[in-house]
Design a protein around this nucleic acid. Sequence first.
DNA 1: CCTCAATGGTCTCCCCCCAGACCTTTGGAC
DNA 2: GTCCAAAGGTCTGGGGGGAGACCATTGAGG
Lengths: 239, 239
Amino acid sequence: MVVQADDAVFRPVRAGNPFEETVERLLQAIKLGVVVPGDRLPPERELATRLNVSRVTLREAIHALTEAGYVESRRGRYGGTFVNEQLPKPRRTPAKRLARDLAGGLDDALTLRFVLETGAAEAAASRTLTTAERDHLERCLAETSTARLADYRRLDSRLHLAIAEVTGSPSLTSAMADVRMRLNELLDAIPLLERNIDHSNHQHQAIIEAILAGAPTPARQSMQEHLAGTEALLRAFLE
Amino acid sequence: MVVQADDAVFRPVRAGNPFEETVERLLQAIKLGVVVPGDRLPPERELATRLNVSRVTLREAIHALTEAGYVESRRGRYGGTFVNEQLPKPRRTPAKRLARDLAGGLDDALTLRFVLETGAAEAAASRTLTTAERDHLERCLAETSTARLADYRRLDSRLHLAIAEVTGSPSLTSAMADVRMRLNELLDAIPLLERNIDHSNHQHQAIIEAILAGAPTPARQSMQEHLAGTEALLRAFLE
DNA sequence: CCTCAATGGTCTCCCCCCAGACCTTTGGAC
DNA sequence: GTCCAAAGGTCTGGGGGGAGACCATTGAGG
């Protein structure tokens, strides 16, 4: 019997405790470039409300990120919690964890990413974009193409997320952010090559141009080629 | 500023309390046809483990569904919790709630559904399916096409879910199940017409044929046309 | 220099949820 | 008829998270 739907619908109601989930969320914001070094996070009271956790729990999560070197808090008016200029380097998680992710969910994540990203590109190209949205895409593209090596993954993620944003669908944006976090963990195990980055930048440009031109099919096509590259890279290194 | 990504990443860590989430999950299983009338749910101990909630919480959820007329429990060996043969009719939630969903998330849900379902159709057609998977698709198709009016929405959902299943990506299946629940709530407000069902069945057949033939682009195309119909229907009735 | 508003930091009380042991019912196997 | 395994039903103790009040710090503005 093909009862995979059972697993889909009877999957865990919650991944972990609120503390862990909150940490993950804040890391998501930082690692996907939604907040950049130097930025201030929203005030604790507001952030706790938005995340639907208590302020105590949020503070514990922030404390954990402080210890890990991601953020720093300052008291007083005009204080707040700020993202560090120097982010900690992602720890290479070798064989062990990779093997686990590989066994369970590499294909799963790659399939979902393919569906979401190509769909987002097409949907974005199908809409009439506002000037602000067009600017946003172009700014993200420019930032990515001029990024230093150490910042590349983060700015790349931010660009892809920007495409989801301009579809106007928050759920789609969330889903893309989630699947990207899953894959970035694996990608961190792979060395970034200058040559790959050049290639990537050209593809990014093609994708954004197609979206700005309102050409859904080329946008999807360009995205598809772009993803194929990363996928091949991942599989080659992990298999 | 276009900071929609902020909302995506700082969205609530948890939608409600474990009880509510568990009820939603069980309803999902029933309303999307993952478990059908007469079926037995997994034993409480096992189900609680899979959902990652305590048995107490699960039992409270089951109790709520019993009160609502969805399931019935029997003690003793070979007992268990069974889905009722006569499911309660979905309550028409008129203007008020619809307006809320409309304001917030109709476009959101429709965009995400479009991306997920067309992507799933394409991904499914791109794979080499096992005999079991092909049978599964054909069985779901047959059941939907011969469904009575009262069962149509449920079997229709089950068929679409089956397409997600045969992509081999559990995450994709989960995402589709979630978005479908959101839309079914709206669809329940719209009367089902015999004519629409006929049309729908023809489209279903085209989609499944394309998937079984291993034709990704036609599968996507057929799905796109199919979704356009429902979307037009929804918009017409709600706007 | 003083004031004040905004922000992080702390404390207390409470409730929901969990883990796990134990009880009860049921019907098939022998 | 007896036994027992598998299922639902019940109880108790403990811990994590939440709500909300309050404290401490800081820097801008008057």
